[in-house]
């Protein structure tokens, strides 16, 4: 999503000293002011200049929207360096992870190749699990560094991170967390077949559009069901993430005891991500309000026990912030 016409924001933390990005990088001294070039496409990232800006509190730079794919290629070439640098603060590493996963999923969804999408999902899930599972990541900390624009790839990436957090809190081991992370990255794969006019409509959907949209769990299921590399639980995340425990969901309207645990988990983090993200017709909801809303659906829409654990994560974050 463009921050303003023609530009997209990137994290300063993703710029490696001496790296050749091959794209122009801009900074803006204040909101609304025109951007000035920080690094030209034919020069390496200057360490001292980068440090000066970072020390001055500048956290975002901008690139031309046309250069987005070059930037994603740069991230994919260097993400191990960026993420494994223990000197890099956790927030920055989470932010980089968000950018990388978002970029990878974007590329694969655009390509429409399921084989590549699953392969890439497994690779990025490994990173997500490693980072979230081995660090004390607070929910608001993660939420604060993720992008919240209205894109299926952004949504899937964010849902994946939240899913790992919830899975970890539920006591799932790292293998299960990985399985859940990949399943979450794939949960909206059926939207690839839905008319983009419906997906990107800047307003509520009419009945016909809603019915078309409601087919995405079935389409996603059909895309994945013949694959040997997709587990039953991952398949159910795609098929059942819109089911509700009181039987009011779709596509089958099954009650909670028939919904796979991964499907119930995915429903919680999917709705949380949707509420806390930008939509063309509404602003993102604050975490507290989103949790209030979701708590009001405890036991009707959402698995009561799992939601309690999700709420615990929010409380945990408050303790961390007070410390």
């Amino acid at each position: 999503m463009s921050d303003h016409r023609g530009f997209v924001p990137i994290s300063m933390a993703t710029l490696l000293p001496s790296a050749m990005l091959g794209i122009d990088v801009f900074v803006r001294s204040a909101p609304g002011l025109p951007s000035a070039k920080l690094f030209a496409s034919d020069e390496p990232v200057c360490e001292s200049k980068l440090r000066d800006y970072c020390n001055a509190g500048v956290t975002s730079a901008f690139i031309d929207v046309e250069d987005r794919h070059k930037y994603q290629s740069y991230l994919q070439r260097n993400w191990h360096l960026l993420l494994e640098d223990s000197q890099t603060p956790l927030e920055n590493r989470l932010e980089i992870m968000g950018d990388v996963v978002r970029g990878v999923i974007d590329k694969q969804l655009q390509g429409g190749d399921i084989q590549s999408l699953i392969k890439a999902s497994n690779q990025v899930a490994e990173t997500a699990v490693k980072l979230i599972s081995t660090n004390e990541v607070a929910l608001s900390q993660l939420c604060a560094v993720l992008h919240h624009d209205y894109g299926t790839f952004t949504h899937s990436a964010n849902v994946s991170f939240y899913a790992v957090m919830l899975a970890k809190q539920l006591g799932y081991d790292q293998v299960e967390q990985h399985e859940v992370a990949v399943g979450a990255l794939l949960h909206d794969v059926g939207k690839m077949e839905i008319d983009s006019g419906i997906i990107n409509k800047p307003g509520p959907l009419n009945l016909q559009e809603m019915n078309a949209m409601k087919r995405h769990p079935i389409i996603g299921f059909e895309k994945l069901v013949h694959r040997e590399d997709v587990s039953f639980g991952q398949l159910m995340m795609t098929y059942q993430h819109h089911e509700r425990v009181d039987g009011s969901g779709y596509p089958c309207a099954i009650p909670g005891d028939l919904i796979h645990p991964y499907g119930r988990l995915c429903a919680i983090v999917d709705v949380f991500e949707a509420l806390t993200s930008q939509r063309p017709y509404r602003k993102p909801m604050e975490i507290e309000k989103a949790m209030d809303f979701m708590t009001s659906k405890r036991g009707t829409d959402f698995d009561a026990d799992m939601l309690d654990v999700w709420v615990e994560l929010t409380n945990k974050e408050e303790v961390n912030y007070e410390q």
Binding site: L224, V225, H226, R227, V230, S231, F232, L235
Partner: peptide, 8 residues
């Protein structure tokens, strides 16, 4: 289908 066979 494959992904269901061993799990149902």
């Amino acid at each position: 289908p494959t992904a269901l066979r061993d799990n149902l």
